[in-house]
Design a protein around this nucleic acid. Structure first.
Lengths: 228, 228
DNA sequence: AAAAAAAGCTGATAAATATCATATTTTATC
DNA sequence: GATAAAATATGATATTTATCAGCTTTTTTT
């Protein structure tokens, strides 16, 4: 099993503030796991009892609405920690996390994280900062959801996806989402998402390469996302 | 000027974890202020440089959308702290805070809060918990905004307002919001909010007492909020 | 108290979006 | 490789919501 103190991934998150000693202890109690595409990492109502550190892959974080639709509130990937929220408030998870592709994760038990939070102020402050940042993002998303049209949200989502996950050699977004996933990100019916996507394609703002999407007119997409 | 160590309001928020000494020092550097109804406490883009503790009154926390509409993301009142987020991430505010009625607040400068965060782990953990809770609420709001109809959101908002702010002797919601405010909470046009409200009135689910709203059929409102 | 401004209300209409139906294409399974 | 299943696509229609216009009531200002 790999060792936390040698793991490059921790550099991307709050764990970078842990000392050698703390990392060695963490190594000793962490477990690694592969989650297959489509499988859940955890589900709503589950006691997580720890934190997941994503080594590889992408995980969609979502919540079921009362009318049975799945709203994706976040996409996390390599380097991200997930599960801190539930751990800190000592509650069951309010969210579902499902592997978008094969996921390589480490699980760090709650006791270990709590100990570090209590002993290492730099770590705690970084967790606090991360959470503050998530909160800002969440506020922005609330405003977008409440005030932007579906068309605007789709344009914005595509740009955000490119920024966050980058592009392949082909220039396509380096994340494979189904039409349904895209609909669940922007909060609309799958048919509506499909319609708007093919509209963007017709206007030559995006192209489809197989399953993948390539943005070819960023400027125009930007404009649409701002409501023009 | 009143003293923090004697102030009952701090019991409602993370400041309850501060020691006598810490509170005395805070008293020495805090400033008190009255913000008149309609006046801003702070605005988007402003460097807040501290935290506000609300002694009395209600403050609406909002964000401008690109199309010029104001989305209310939170209503804070007596006992709440506001401004932690910007302080922690060391950024300008991403939100506006405007007094809904006359507001009595204390301002605690950043340096003082940072010092306490560094020195008092109980305080820090409580801030972390508060933030985690805000994040959960924000996620729920995202899902509501994305998936519920305006009618559902209105019903839910009314119930939430009653739960959070309680009722007067008359049984009306103990918070005075304009129709525009209500529209800005649920993310719709003012006319739509008005229409839906008078609809609820026609169905005798709510009544208007002057400016105030009284819920008379909670059950039905609950049903509507769940989509029936 | 009169005038002006703001807030609240209602109707008509347009635009956005959901829903249902059905067809086509892609992917998985045997 | 045939078949079944899932994903994608498109049209028709219904529903929801926004916008615009005009009107009434309430609040503020003078």
């Amino acid at each position: 099993m790999s060792k936390c103190e040698q793991c490059i991934v921790r550099k991307f998150n709050s764990l970078k503030h842990l000392s050698k000693d703390e990392l060695v202890r963490m190594s000793a109690c962490k477990t690694s796991k592969i989650i297959k595409k489509g499988e859940p990492l955890f589900v709503e109502g589950e006691h997580i009892n720890g934190v997941f550190c994503i080594k590889d892959g992408i995980c969609k974080v979502s919540k079921m609405s009362e009318n049975g639709k799945n709203q994706i509130v976040n996409l996390v990937h390599r380097g991200d920690l997930i599960g801190e929220r539930s751990l800190i408030s000592d509650e069951v998870s309010n969210l579902n996390a499902v592997a978008l592709n094969d996921l390589e994760i480490c699980f760090i038990p709650k006791t270990e994280i709590i100990r570090d939070l209590e002993k290492n102020p730099n770590f705690t402050m970084d967790v606090l900062k991360t959470m503050a940042n998530s909160l800002k993002n969440a506020d922005n998303l609330i405003v977008d959801m409440a005030q932007k049209t579906v068309k605007q949200r789709l344009a914005e989502a595509l740009l955000n996806l490119e920024e966050k996950f980058g592009t392949t050699n082909e220039g396509t977004l380096d994340i494979q989402l189904s039409r349904e996933d895209i609909a669940n990100i922007i909060g609309t019916a799958t048919e509506s998402a499909i319609r708007l996507l093919s509209n963007l394609k017709k206007k030559e703002i995006i192209v489809f390469k197989g399953k993948d999407i390539k943005i070819i007119n960023h400027n125009e997409l930007e404009k649409i996302s701002h409501g023009f």
